[in-house]
């Protein structure tokens, strides 16, 4: 299917550099930050952000993974989904500033599920959201604190984020047509 490249490899690098700087700025040095990647592609993004925060200011940041399958609100609309792995960093999330990391912010339902999951896992001091791409069309009152790129899209279009860790290459594509 025909697609347009919205972010190439170097763009993704620059965008993540900027988000890491913004996190350091907004959190006064990221001392209390825990990065939680939302499975699947939020996980490598969270790891990359932690590497940059370490490189820029020598601040080690705990990284965890969050699988929200069991908290989805559309489970009974699809056939049963496999469950991914959830792992909090040692030290947990209580009293920390948790930054959820995901690839695409769309309806907001994934973030809603992640917030529900978080409240079952502990009590963070604050929760923020970082996304590589915000494509609009929110169905819930949710916004991101750190956005890599805002992309105006039509509902029928598809945004695909490819990452080296999961897909072998770094690229963000906008595909026309109807998703499955």
């Amino acid at each position: 299917m025909a697609y347009k490249v919205i972010l190439a490899e170097t763009d993704i690098h620059r965008v993540l550099d900027r988000i890491a700087h913004q996190i350091l700025e907004k959190t006064q040095g990221a001392g209390d930050v825990v990065l939680l990647g939302i499975a699947t592609r939020g996980v490598p993004l969270a790891q990359r952000l932690a590497e940059r925060i370490l490189a820029f200011e020598q601040q080690p940041t705990p990284v965890g993974t969050l699988d929200i399958t069991l908290y989805r609100d559309d489970l009974n609309r699809h056939s049963t989904r496999a469950v991914g792995h959830t792992e909090l960093p040692t030290g947990g999330i209580d009293g920390r500033r948790v930054i959820l990391v995901d690839d695409v912010l769309f309806s907001g339902r994934t973030v809603r599920a992640a917030l529900d999951a978080l409240s079952d896992l502990g009590r963070p001091a604050a929760v923020q959201l970082a996304v590589l791409v915000d494509r609009g069309h929110r169905q819930l009152p949710i916004r991101a604190d750190y956005v890599g790129k805002n992309i105006p899209t039509a509902l029928a279009e598809q945004v695909r984020v490819l990452l080296k860790e999961t897909d072998g290459t770094d690229e963000v594509r906008l595909t026309e047509g109807t998703p499955a």
């Binding site: 609309r77 056939s79 049963t80 989904r81």
Partner: peptide, 9 residues
Amino acid sequence: LYLLLGGRS
């Protein structure tokens, strides 16, 4: 239970 009941019924 999740596998049997979790999806579309």
